[in-house]
Design a protein around this nucleic acid. Structure first.
Lengths: 236, 236
DNA sequence: TTCGTTCCGATGCGCTTGCATCACATCCTA
DNA sequence: TAGGATGTGATGCAAGCGCATCGGAACGAA
């Protein structure tokens, strides 16, 4: 056995093992021993890579989050790259992107199960919540951009999304993201079929796209005095 | 101490303890000993009430689910009772009902945390998933009814919701439920503020209500050959 | 080759877990 | 009042946990 081992590679392998275990027994089923076995390394190696179990979990969450983000933005990029026909692409891209976030095939279902396990733990573990927030914050502008492109012929110049942070596209993006997560959850517990979830998602996207008027919101949205940005503690 | 103890009362007390513990450390933090301590009974008593830990968890989930359902339908009933002004009530009721499902104050936040913990576990524990499905299935027709009342002046006669199971109100109800859950999740991990979540929810409700045309769906919803009912294994 | 360093994999420890067991306190029946 | 049945709460137990420790294999330097 070589004296020097690629640590990053090993960390990733361990993260994969964590996900695999979390997938079939939840986060409670993730123990150092099982992780080591599953990853095909010794327990000592795991402990060398991560000082503590929580550190390992945080890394694993970040790992799977990165994979999701990459997959999603790949989808989005794929569209931008071949954007020759301004016909109906953005809406479909949105659907595929959010479907990517959410469910469809079994592989993604597994990922979603792991994700959900982490989300639940994050509700009582600030460190994990921070990682999740970062990931969601990454996804948000991407959705805003796609939404913007799908509604107006003249998209916003480049990176900067024109108006304020609680302008309509932001709202719509948040709504879609939350909806996708909710649908995923419902699919995972068997309350909805993946097909139904996708249909609902698609319908929502279409509604949001067709509903152009960003300004004219009904009067009762004034619930909170200042809607503010709606996003708290983005990084830190 | 009396020889005969109210078992049901005790079970409920234990369920409350389970929820309290799950609230501040997730489901992993729920151990028989801690539950016993928190409930103010001995461990033996807990074991007498529930043959196994899982049985206890299932009961606890059902308990909290019942509480939520009751609260929600109380909201709905409150409206129906005082329904003298057909002005704008149903929409607000919907908002309040779904807000009830979701978040708002800290007490409900705690409930949501517990709920989320159970949902995550349910993704890998069929028994829990079954309980959750039942609860969601209970909520669904209630939302359908409220939606129906809010869009048409002539609501459906009584219990029977007129058209097929994938008629628009059903879709809308599922969308709202999923959205509420997704928003709750995002609030719990600190990605959204409760205010933002409520605003988004309210906006979605208004959109769904104003979008009357139930039939004319865009062409691409034909993803699945038969949208069917979208609800699988409701009871068993 | 031989030494010194570096890293790995196995083992041990203290603790907690879910569950089984058992002596005892409590209440109904004669 | 005595007796039995019933449910209770403390204790025991095997298993599993996270983490710390340690002997030994694999390499570079001399």
């Amino acid at each position: 056995m070589p004296r020097q081992v690629d640590h990053e590679e090993r960390r990733r392998r361990i993260a994969e093992a964590v996900c695999a275990l979390a997938d079939d027994s939840g986060l409670e089923g993730v123990t150092l021993r099982d992780v080591a076995t599953r990853a095909g390394v010794s327990m000592g190696a795991v402990q060398r890579c991560f000082k503590t179990k929580q550190e390992m979990l945080v890394f694993a969450l970040d790992h799977i989050g990165e994979r999701v983000t990459e997959r999603v933005s790949a989808r989005a990029r794929a569209r931008t790259a071949t954007a020759d026909e301004p016909a109906e692409p953005a809406g479909s891209t949105l659907a595929r992107v959010l479907g990517e976030v959410a469910l469809v095939d079994e592989a993604q279902r597994a990922e979603a199960r792991v994700w959900l396990a982490f989300v639940a733990q994050a509700a009582v573990t600030p460190e994990l919540a921070a990682v999740l927030r970062n990931r969601y914050s990454e996804l948000h502008p991407l959705l805003v951009r796609l939404l913007g492109e799908s509604r107006t012929a003249a998209p916003v110049p480049d990176g900067g999304v024109a108006p304020g942070p609680d302008h309509e596209p932001h709202r719509a993006a948040r709504t879609l993201l939350a909806l996708a997560d909710g649908l995923t959850t419902h699919v995972l517990i068997g309350h909805l079929t993946p097909q139904t979830a996708l249909t609902l998602l698609r319908a929502q996207i279409d509604t949001l796209i067709r509903t152009n008027p960003p300004a004219a919101l009904p009067p009762h949205t004034a619930g909170g005095p200042a809607p503010a940005n709606g996003q708290e503690a983005p990084a830190t």
